[in-house]
Simulated assay, not measured.
Amino acid sequence: MTVRFAALGDSLTEGVGDPVPGGRRGWAALLAPSLSPGPVNFRNLANSGALSRDLLVSQLPAALALRPQYAAVVVGGNDTLRASFDLDLTARHLSAVLRSLTAVGTVPLTACLPDPGRLLRLPTPLARPLARRMRGVNAVVHALSEHHHAVHLHLADLPWTARRALLSVDRLHPSAAGHQLIACGFHSLLVEAGHPVGPPPAELATVAPAPGADLWWMATQGTRWVAARSTDLLPGLLALAAIEARHQLRGSARRLDLAEAEATAAIVARLTVPTPEPSIGDLPAPSTADTSPTA
């Protein structure tokens, strides 16, 4: 039997950081052949810059048409990098995607994401608001993954900053070795959960970016990325940084963390309410019609 696997997500799942002749590969493509001892029909629907809304509106219909046994749902980083970030809206988008997939029997593969401010080594006043947003998104992903029985990889806990070879030159996406680590992580979790998968993904050589590669990327590509974000994220992020600085001076920064945690908990509570089992009073009354056979 052919196993069907759809990958929904952004640049991480599209394969940025893992270039191959003719395009990109990425962790989902590395994992796909290992999802079954037999043939696998893999379709990568992810695209760079995708937000949680894009998964719901654009990628989900194509995934449902495939009726996959497995579907990667890894998103949220781009949401936190937008001035219009709304955790409640992001959470509702993710919830709708996972609910739709599990309703047709698909096993979702989800992951929490590392803090982009830490990866990019942003100054503390800029990094803290992003970290707070990422904590909120990850808390939502954790809760929704448990609620929908997803196979969840704690991607944020992998040693991204400790092992430079795991990051691409942009310091925001995995390198080829980083993508392979993600693929192997999901494969191990599927094995532990008893899924009938095939052998693990083949091991790739771990090569750190060459000296000066970070500077070359910034000179040739990174400036475009920064410019694009500057017209959207930067004004809002600077405003957040100003609020952060004021709270730091007053010694009240902890209030921001507590407010974020309370808001996140309320969102999670709304989206993970257990579906009640029908009580006897809710069941239809048995029919009193004569069911004896007729001549």
Rank of each mutant, 00 (worst) to 15 (best):
T2M: 06
V3L: 14
V3T: 15
R4T: 08
S11H: 06
L12S: 03
V16R: 10
G17E: 02
G17V: 02
V20E: 14
G23W: 11
R25G: 01
G26S: 06
L30V: 08
S34A: 05
L35Y: 09
P37S: 04
G38H: 15
F42M: 13
R43N: 09
S48M: 06
R53E: 07
D54N: 11
V57A: 09
S58M: 10
Q59F: 00
Q59D: 00
A62C: 03
A65N: 13
Q69P: 05
A72H: 05
V73H: 13
V73E: 12
V74E: 02
V74R: 07
V75H: 07
N78W: 04
D79V: 01
D79S: 02
R82D: 00
R82K: 11
L89E: 12
T90E: 00
H93S: 02
L94Y: 10
V97F: 06
L98M: 06
R99S: 13
S100H: 13
L101D: 05
L101M: 06
T102G: 00
A111P: 03
A111G: 01
C112G: 15
C112H: 12
P114M: 04
G117Y: 03
R118K: 13
L119T: 05
L119N: 07
R121M: 08
A127L: 07
A127T: 01
R128Q: 11
R128G: 00
A131Y: 00
R132W: 08
R133I: 01
M134V: 07
N138Y: 05
A143V: 02
E146A: 13
E146L: 10
E146R: 15
H147K: 04
H149K: 09
D157M: 04
R163E: 15
A165D: 15
S168L: 03
D170E: 09
D170Q: 03
D170H: 03
H173C: 02
A176N: 03
L181N: 01
A183L: 10
C184P: 00
H187M: 02
S188E: 15
S188M: 09
E192T: 12
E192N: 09
G194T: 03
H195W: 15
G198W: 04
P200V: 05
P201C: 07
P201L: 06
E203G: 05
L204T: 11
L204H: 14
T206L: 13
V207P: 03
A210M: 05
G212P: 04
W217R: 05
A219V: 01
G222M: 09
T223N: 10
A227I: 08
A227W: 13
R229S: 05
S230C: 06
T231E: 12
D232G: 07
L233G: 05
P235C: 04
A239Y: 13
I243D: 15
H247Y: 06
Q248I: 02
Q248H: 15
L249P: 04
L249C: 14
G251E: 11
A253V: 03
D257W: 13
L258D: 14
E260K: 05
T264L: 03
I267S: 00
V268H: 04
V273P: 04
E277N: 04
P278Q: 08
S279E: 14
D282K: 02
T291K: 13
S292Q: 14
